[in-house]
Write a protein that binds this DNA or RNA. Structure first.
Lengths: 202, 202
DNA sequence: ACCCCTAAGATACGTTGCGTTTCTTATTGA
DNA sequence: TCAATAAGAAACGCAACGTATCTTAGGGGT
């Protein structure tokens, strides 16, 4: 009755399900994210979901992947330090609480189901435009003369996201404090960049 | 029958339970770690456990905390880089897979039960002797003249563990590859240390 | 325009594991 | 000696996973 309108199929249905899944994730978090809940919200039933995804972890990842945010516009505040503060702040909002909970939850499930671990790794490895963004910011600093010429290794370019994620993991909870971001930038990341530049000192 | 010998109580019983819990964690991982399993292994029953810990997350944390590994002996290989490789390798073995799985699992539970989040944070914040170890290694390097005098900020001292943990999270699975460790040391951590030293260059 | 076959939707099931309740019985210690 | 305390055993209710069964809608080929 509720849905005697029309029976959705294929791609349309899939979109509806993933939208519902994302809504559940956003409202409840992964911990309270249930397959039944998604089915109910999408106005369909569990078997329909299980025909498409192997379990709740895969469903959550699929929903998350559709929302790849990204395209971090390259901000230019005029100085390296403030650029970095802005970048870290941006990351901490974008990639913060939601992502950490999903990652934690999916990861926990992944230890049971190795296939899921693989999917998660793919999702996390996707560096979206981060590498490019960081490189751009650093290059600008080099041009300005704030840094000696730097060859930015892959891991160093990824480090901002890693630092932010780590902070979430170990300190849980809310969005990152300004003071914390300042520490990450001043005590870790800027020194790292300076160190990369002065590689000739050894 | 099995235990008509003597009914354990108090501290003795608690030790037995936590030993059993640790054994379960080690053999099965957090994903397959169950309260029932621990009770069975310890030769007792669930209510006894629930009288002491609020749930399986707390139980796992308690078991883990008893095993504070630690006392990383301060190794001295004669050079900063090899010291660091050794330290990272040590961390990757000690704190690696097991810890990551526990953290992921407990964290997932923690999103449901905020009290658990607090416990987890305490546990993670405990820097065991890591800070001291890193500081010692760095100080030796300074004495040798490999680094300019460095004031090591807290976050920089913790970074090795963070880097290792991150690698586990994003790359999953087994113990860290030698090559990966070398990258972490050469591309990230040593530059960071050099950068901290050359703070005067700005 | 018809019919068939695929896939959607509904329902109900079996299982696992959490956390609880109830009751019995051993041990401690006053 | 005996009462209070806590251990041990068994069973329960609940939530959620993942599955199996069945009915029915509607798209596509003829």
């Amino acid at each position: 009755m509720t849905e005697s309108k029309s029976r959705r199929r294929g791609a349309e249905l899939e979109r509806a399900i993933l939208d519902a899944a994302w809504a559940e994730l956003s409202e409840l978090g992964y911990a309270r994210f249930t397959v039944e809940g998604v089915a109910a919200r999408a106005g369909t039933s569990k078997p329909v979901l299980y025909r498409r995804w192997k379990g709740r972890a895969e469903l959550a990842l699929a929903a998350w992947s559709r929302r790849v945010p990204v395209s971090d516009e390259v901000l230019d505040t005029g100085a390296l330090r403030t650029d970095m503060i802005a970048l870290f702040t941006h990351l901490s909002r974008r990639a913060g609480a939601m992502m950490t909970e999903i990652v934690a939850g999916v990861m926990a499930d992944a230890f049971r189901h190795p296939e899921v671990a693989e999917l998660l790794r793919e999702r996390l490895a996707r560096p979206f435009s981060l590498t490019e963004t960081v490189t751009a910011v650093v290059n600008r600093a080099v041009e300005r003369g704030e840094l000696p010429p730097v060859e930015l290794p892959h891991r160093a370019a990824r480090a901002p996201l890693d630092l932010v994620r780590n902070e979430y993991i170990t300190c849980g909870g809310g969005p990152l404090d300004e003071a914390v971001i300042a520490e990450l930038v001043d005590d870790v990341y800027l020194p790292l960049l300076r160190g990369l530049g002065s590689a000739c000192t050894d």
